[in-house]
Nucleic acid binder design. Structure first.
Length: 560
RNA sequence: GCCCCUAUAGUUUAAUGGAUAAAACUGCGGACUUCUAAGCCGUUGAUCUAGGUUCGAUUCCUGGUGGGGGCACCA
């Protein structure tokens, strides 16, 4: 419809010799208008023609009316010169009918035939999986699902840092603490890491020992180190899997720094012109290219994060037989690194660089400041999920519903994911426990609750022999009916802008409109001739909530 | 010091350059012997600062201030 209106307006402009004027046709954001669409074309044009916007608007309205578009009920001039469109009931009903029978309402084919890789979460074995990882997982998962909703062949990728100085920190800590196969757990690994990391900064001789361990991890020549390493790595990775299951993420492919490392090293050594030697290390001279200089191979001839990441791009392309887009979603603290990295990639892999996109999202910060696994000042993801889950169970007891383990977990994950996805992912989020533990208002559980309630009322309706049907409809559309039809365009727009929160805010607005509708209208009432229509709208809202929550990576329990 | 990001009710967040800046939480006040009260209705309350561009600026540009991140062998 938007396209139809845009096309008609362009025709009018062309006839007047005003091609190329940019204007918008969109849903009104103003709550006080009943219109289905608006355009600002008259205001844009008025500036060019030196006329009052209202005069231009009136003129365009007359020309539009002459076209007699069948879908329109009315076209009027409003406010300072907006043109508002109202659709007629028949067209509206048609849209409702199509949406109800759509196999997956909200999805589209705009990325059909395209292969997209989304890399996210990227935790480091030997370090704690904390609430920051939960944040980055929620962001990446929703980006991946947005691509799926837009028709892309999507692959989820996880790149885990199983080698590097942080591992040496942890291994040194393990030795100091005397940990063995019986005592190496996710918790003790975190402690070992914190011990190693803090000592590394404070104690010169310990730092030397840790650097030696780092070399051994890469060379795999030391039996004792190998044993501890393999043990710790396995414990960490198994632990991560339990978390991925909780947050409903299934990765298609895992990459490790240990496999990217040798390729990265070779790549740097094979390109001495791009990575010249400087002060014993191999660097990329970013400064000469308007950025900053970074080390790709350190003095010990070990590849740094940068070299590994570069090699990873190639590994991904090989593993997946090429791709149209490769997204890497991380916290924004490495935004600057990534600019340098992409610059280097342009020179090393000119075919891959344009297909690579970094999405730097905000960081989770505590009221006391930044989290640091180095000092052990982190909130473990598992601990946090467990706490929120307990609060959900508590809430179930209060409200008298059956306490269900699976539902409680779904609610807890919804609360956590929604709170990270409700606002722009670019902004930092301050960890607010009380807000996370609240299931009221603007929250994930609010959406789940609305969905569960819809199921319940549709069951009651069916029991009263009221089934969704659009044969008899009231003359004016309810707010919720108009809103629900916007879902597909929200999904498309959210992907274009890489903004999952557009889906979140939309769903909350929709749920709010539905709950208001629900409060005043009886749906399961066999005496009401409009009941089947209301049931149809209700059903579509339910489908929308379910698909929308899925897009955010949140489960929608049938009842709660 | 240099570079990047950022600033909206008391708090957490919305708003492709457009209409009276929208919600939630909190506070206060309501409705219901009706389909799930994790709900609904009402109410108080905000664009950091100084300029600029524009018919129109929370949005774009410049300076200032506050906050965050980065700046060579960590990731």
């Amino acid at each position: 419809m938007k396209e139809t209106l845009t096309f008609a307006l362009k025709e009018i402009l062309a006839a007047q010799g005003h091609e190329g004027v940019s204007f918008v046709v969109d849903y009104p954001t103003d709550k006080n208008t009943e219109a289905d669409y608006f355009t600002n074309v008259a205001m844009v044009l008025a500036g060019k023609r030196g006329l009052a916007p209202k005069v231009v608007a009136e003129e365009i309205v007359e020309l539009l009316k002459a076209k007699q578009l069948p879908q329109l009920a009315s076209v009027i001039v409003a406010g300072p010169g907006f043109i508002n469109f109202t659709l007629n009931r028949e067209y509206h009903t048609e849209q409702l009918q199509e949406s109800l029978t759509h196999p997956r309402f909200g999805s589209n084919e705009s990325w059909s035939g395209k292969k997209v890789l989304v890399e996210y979460t990227d935790p480091n074995p030997f370090k704690e999986f904390h609430i920051g990882h939960l944040f980055t997982n929620a962001v990446g998962e929703s980006i991946a699902r947005l691509f799926m909703m837009n028709g892309a062949e999507t692959f989820r990728v996880n790149y885990q840092g199983d080698v590097g100085l942080h591992v040496a920190h942890a291994l040194w800590g393990i030795q100091q603490l005397g940990l063995t196969s019986d005592t190496i757990t996710p918790k003790t690994l975190g402690q070992a890491y914190a011990l190693g990391a803090t000592t590394y900064k404070a104690d010169e001789s310990a730092a030397l020992a840790i650097r030696e361990i780092n070399k051994k991890v890469y060379s795999r020549e030391d039996e004792i180190i190998n044993e501890l390493y393999d043990l710790g790595r396995t414990v960490s990775l198994q632990y991560f899997e339990t978390i991925y299951a909780m947050v409903d993420t299934q990765f298609d492919e895992y990459f490790f720094e240990s496999e990217a490392g040798p390729h990265g090293k070779a790549l740097v050594l094979d390109n001495p012109d791009i990575f010249p030697e400087s002060d014993g290390a191999r660097i990329f001279d970013g400064e000469a290219r308007g950025l900053h200089t970074r080390v790709f191979l350190n003095k010990e001839v070990l590849p740094t994060y940068e070299a590994k990441e570069l090699a990873l791009a190639k590994l991904k392309a090989e593993r997946f037989g090429g791709y149209d887009l490769s997204i890497i979603s991380t916290a924004n603290e490495i935004n600057e690194y990534f600019k340098v990295l992409l610059c280097a990639m342009k020179e090393v892999y000119p075919d891959l660089a344009p297909k690579t996109e970094h999405i730097g999202h905000g960081m989770v910060r505590l009221t006391t400041g930044k989290m640091s696994s180095r000092t052990g000042d982190v909130i473990s993801a598992i601990d946090f999920i467990t706490e929120v889950k307990q609060a959900a169970e508590e809430k179930m007891k209060e409200s008298g519903t059956v306490v269900d383990n699976e539902v409680a977990e779904a609610v807890a994950i919804a609360a956590i994911k929604y709170s990270t996805l409700r606002g722009s992912i670019l902004q930092d989020s301050i960890f607010d426990k009380d807000q996370a533990l609240s299931f009221e208002g603007d929250s994930g559980p609010y959406l789940q609750y609305t969905y569960a309630r819809i199921n319940s009322v549709l069951e009651k309706a069916a029991a009263a022999l009221v089934y969704p049907d659009l044969t008899t409809i009231p003359s004016t559309a309810y707010e919720v009916e108009k809103l629900v039809l916007r879902f597909p365009s929200v999904v498309e727009n959210a992907l274009t802008e890489r903004a999952p929160h557009k889906v979140a805010t939309y769903l909350t607005e929709l749920a709010g409109a539905f709950n208001s509708f629900y409060a005043v209208e009886k749906i399961a009432d066999s005496n009401d001739k409009y009941a089947p229509y209301k049931a149809a709208v209700t059903k579509l809202v339910g489908t929308t909530l379910k698909n929308g929550l899925w897009t955010l990576g949140i489960k929608a329990p049938e009842r709660m």
